[in-house]
Simulated assay, not measured.
Amino acid sequence: MSQARLMDGTSLARRILEETGKRAAGLTERTGTAPCLATVLVGEDPASVTYVRMKQNRCRKAGITSRHVALPAATTTEELVGTLEALSADPGVHGILLQHPMGEHIDERAAFEAIAPGKDVDGVTFASFATMSFGLPGFVSCTPGGVMRLLDEYGVDPAGKRAVVVGRSAILGKPAGMLLLARDATVTYCHSRTRDLSAAVREADIVVAAVGRPRLIRGQDVKPGAVVIDAGYNPGNIGDVDFDSAAERASLITPVPGGVGPMTIATLLEQTVDAAARQLGAAGV
């Protein structure tokens, strides 16, 4: 029998999206312009196609216009950069999401940096990472931002706690650690070169698993009473945490699916409305 309480990202995301929809409607009424999110997809990776379609559906429900740009798999870095620069210069587009992965021939960082910081609603640029790290106005990386909202929803104050982030990607692991650090957690990053990962995780009051390896974190690795956030996604709806065994020791745990995933999309759309409000001169909406 599982002992941990579930951190229900689905219900929290639903509430965020309801509020986002109200704000989008108010912005549209006040300015005559609906918030617009442009999604850019290179190639036809089935998981990415599904994910983009899901985001478009959520946009529609929230009163956000979506513009999809589908590019062939053979698109070069230069062509992709040109597309993103054009969207950045388009006043009818308020937020830009570049779906990844993009193919090994694409310079991912160059592509991300072609997105104007004011439209980087996915929080993937250097500028967004810097503003997030320094606590300045800007956009957070969506999944880490969703993680922090979940912690707040369930009354988890990171201050003074030991947090272990397993994973160091530029748009998930690294920003998750910086957001926790900004909230006065003592943060340890772990990764593929970490020696004795289990020992490091056992010290954690808060565990964020974000490495993309199925069931890497097992129940025996979890400190009794720890909060376990599974931000990993692997084929078959399997997370980075062995849920059943970890739930026996954790106090709070996110399910996969239904935990971090819905929060990522909710954060993306919330930030799209934020971006539109700033660009349309209606920041109070």
Rank of each mutant, 00 (worst) to 15 (best):
G212K: 08
D274N: 01
A159M: 13
T39S: 09
K223V: 03
V121Y: 02
C36P: 00
L80N: 01
L12W: 01
P257G: 04
R183Q: 05
G146Q: 13
T254D: 10
R183S: 11
V121F: 09
D157I: 12
K119D: 03
A24I: 00
S66Y: 05
K22R: 14
G103H: 03
E104Y: 07
A200H: 15
V227R: 03
T65H: 09
Y233L: 02
S169C: 11
E113S: 06
Y189F: 13
K61D: 04
R218C: 15
G173L: 05
E113D: 09
P137D: 07
R168G: 13
G9T: 00
M263I: 02
G261Q: 11
T50Y: 12
D242L: 11
L179E: 04
P72N: 07
V124W: 01
V241A: 08
E153S: 09
G177R: 06
S2N: 10
L6Q: 11
D230Y: 01
L268P: 06
R5Y: 09
E78G: 14
A283L: 11
V121I: 01
I217N: 09
R168D: 14
D244A: 11
V187C: 02
M263V: 07
R202E: 13
G32N: 10
L27A: 02
R278D: 15
L97S: 12
D157N: 13
A62N: 00
L280H: 07
V42D: 08
G284C: 10
A182L: 11
V164H: 07
P137K: 02
P144Y: 02
L179M: 12
A47K: 12
A226I: 06
G138Q: 10
E108N: 14
P144E: 10
G173V: 09
Q220K: 15
S245N: 14
T28M: 05
D120Q: 03
A24K: 06
R249A: 15
A24P: 04
R5G: 09
D152N: 13
Q3G: 13
A24F: 00
P46R: 12
F139Y: 14
L269Q: 00
D107V: 01
I238M: 01
L150Y: 04
L197P: 14
M54Y: 02
I238A: 05
Y189P: 10
G219W: 08
L181E: 06
T272K: 07
L216C: 14
Q279P: 10
T50L: 13
T65N: 15
N234K: 07
I253K: 04
V121T: 03
D90R: 01
G135T: 02
C36M: 08
V207L: 05
T77G: 05
P257R: 02
A114I: 00
T194F: 02
A176W: 09
E44Q: 06
S141W: 04
E18Q: 15
G160Q: 02
T254M: 05
V208H: 07
A47S: 15
A209V: 08
I253S: 03
V69G: 07
A277C: 03
R218M: 14
Y189I: 12
D205I: 08
Y233S: 12
S88H: 03
